[in-house]
Amino acid sequence: MDAAFVIATIIKILIVLGIFSALAGFGTYVERKVLAFMQRRLGPMHVGPYGLLQVLADGIKLFTKEDFIPQGAVRPIFMIAPVITAATAFIAMAAIPMFPEFTIGGYTVKPIISDINVGLLFVLGVMGAGLYGPLLAGMASQNKWSILGAARTAIQFLSYEVVTGLSVLAPVMIVGSLSLIDFNNYQAGGVSDWLVWKQPIAFILFLIAGFAETNRTPFDLLEHEAEVISGYATEYSGMRWGMFFIGEYANMFTLGFLASLIFLGGFNDLWFIPGAIAILMKVFFIFFFFLWTRASWPHVRPDQLMWLCWKVLMPLAVINVVITGIVMMF
């Protein structure tokens, strides 16, 4: 049993690593296509049928590009920063139950690498620690744009971590557990049991904070081209730059899984759709939503970001927690 557990865990880790690295690459293709269609363009078309092999071409380019380290940079930290982003994105997935349990040849497989009972906090904490990647990259690059990106990372992380924490607090109070599996089981009774109906404000706040934490468009101040060239990634090239983006796309999928597990019913069967396909649909809708907003909404300024966080979102989150507490008490 013990040996089987170790082997099963290793296989699960390899599968998660492989699938999500590939999905991160495929995510860039989907992003380019969706953005192109929304802007009346075609997107990549030339490599492979409908440009499907563009990911491969990009990968070859990234891998064979010179691994350049600027002279004034702090070498070890400059080299380790992208690894932090990519690694934390995958570590965060360790505590996410991706699918319902299933059986292969008499062996029940739990599609979660490590079922710790504080899974939600673990995922959020490790995803938050992933912002050390941009921070260290920006500070080690010896470049003014980079250090501006790093400073923005610091403020964005410190403020939006608060909103994420407070927004999931209300659902945690209702469910009474920090385990994502408990969240899933709580919403087992169909669409009407979804937590998003009980906690709509928490859901919206969580999504907004998720945009800030995954560094996606309305809040992607860390590498806002118009203001700070490429922010923290200005000095990066080749695979080190690629690792930042694998981490970013993996984080988007993590956030998709989190939002669907906490608010949208998780991997429970949805009408006639089996649970595994239902959660995939939810995750891909949230992924699509990320791209959709990127095509539609403009960036915000850093001061608007802080205004939104501290004057709007945080008070709303606190009020939401208080009201939830009062309602639960009576």
Partner: peptide
């Protein structure tokens, strides 16, 4: 992890 990653981030600032 959560508390100290935030706290050290402030030290970075």
């Amino acid at each position: 992890i959560i508390v100290y990653s935030g706290a050290v981030m402030a030290v970075y600032a």
